[in-house]
């Protein structure tokens, strides 16, 4: 880049005047030392206000409850008291929360592998030689990233809805059976499909970017040794992009366990999605539907901890595996 050559020119010029530079730096040393703290001030204040404080408050609330005296009428009849871990034990034995967690685990078991598998496949295909129409297909596959989850769920929701879906129209015309996609087992596929559709493109770009950063010489050597494109993909490309695969896995796990907008949007279209379908929906329902912010806070903390344990657990396993491979 032209910028780089210009900079080296400046560096050479600067080193010629090094003694003066040093004295100058010393004179302004105080402001140089203070500057990074001043620059980071807004970020730190926002972090304290909108991350640390809410988390602390959620933990505080999760240890509290409202105690009702008598009939709960009159002032002073309801008071907030410490309750230890009782909100946590109640949440963990709440079958609805446990069922929601199981539903989301099942959903995640479909979404994460299929989404990342397709993202990897598309990235490898984009990186193949002599492949055509790449700028069009890359943009088309990436496009759902720009579409809000709510609208994605709306669009697919209508495509699942027998009265307006073109698929049902064709099935109807052909006299074929029409499965109900918005109930039972198919509902999982229907919901997973929305997430897969929305997430594949972004992950494809992340993987493709790291594929392109592999130096060409690596392939040249393999090709001279007679490796087929498939062998190159399996033996060279996939291992070399493993770190970005681990990263996309990590973030996909976090995002999947937080699923909220898509099932919430499908609710008006089907009776099969309850208000507590995912753990997050249950938290919302308890906090605002049932006005029990204390147990909602405890559940939110549990979800956060579970998410961190799962995602970091995955990271540890992935790292241990890659170390093993290195040792081999």
């Amino acid at each position: 880049m032209s910028g780089t050559t210009m900079n080296t020119g400046k560096a050479a010029h600067g080193s010629g005047r090094a003694p003066r530079a040093r004295s100058r730096t010393r004179a302004t040393g105080g402001s140089v030392r203070r500057a990074p703290y001043a620059f980071l001030f807004p970020a730190v204040v926002l972090f304290l206000l909108f991350f640390v404080l809410p988390i602390g408050y959620a933990v505080y609330l999760s240890l509290r409850k409202v105690e009702v005296k008598g009939l709960g009428l009159g002032s002073g009849a309801r008071s907030e008291v410490w309750t230890g871990l009782s909100n946590y034990t109640a949440a963990l034995s709440d079958s609805e929360l446990v069922n929601g967690a199981l539903r989301v685990l099942g959903y995640g078991a479909i979404v994460v592998p299929v989404m990342l598998g397709s993202a990897l496949l598309f990235a490898l295909m984009l990186d193949t030689e002599r492949v055509r129409l790449t700028s069009f297909t890359r943009l088309a596959i990436f496009l759902p990233y720009a579409i809000p989850g709510v609208i994605a769920a709306l669009l697919w929701g209508f495509l699942y809805l027998p009265s307006v879906s073109p698929f049902y129209f064709l099935l109807d015309k052909a006299g074929l059976p029409q499965p109900d996609l918005l109930d039972g087992g198919p509902l999982f596929i229907a919901l997973s499909n929305i997430a897969i559709w929305g997430g594949t493109g972004f992950n494809m770009i992340v993987i493709y970017t790291s594929l392109r950063s592999i130096p060409v010489e690596v392939y040249e050597a393999a090709k001279l040794d007679g490796c087929s494109p498939l062998q190159i993909a399996l033996r060279i490309k996939i291992p070399m992009v493993a770190p970005s695969l681990v990263l996309t896995f990590f973030f996909s796990i976090i995002a999947t366990l937080q699923v909220f907008a898509e099932p919430t949007t499908l609710r008006p279209l089907t009776n099969s999605v309850s208000t507590t379908w995912s753990p997050l929906m249950k938290v919302y329902q308890d906090a605002f539907g049932n006005n029990d912010i204390y147990s909602a806070a405890a559940q939110a903390v549990i979800i956060a901890v579970a998410t961190l344990v799962l995602s970091f657990g995955f990271l540890r396993v992935a790292n241990a595996r890659s170390k093993q491979e290195e040792a081999r």
Partner: peptide, 27 residues
């Protein structure tokens, strides 16, 4: 020569991703 299979796979992916958008444009 065009790498036929990768191009086809990518086109299928593109069709899948464009389908709901095409539907909403028509609907």
């Amino acid at each position: 020569r065009v790498a036929f299979v990768p191009t086809l796979v990518l086109l299928l992916g593109a069709v899948y991703c464009l389908l709901p958008v095409a539907w909403v444009v028509m609907a």
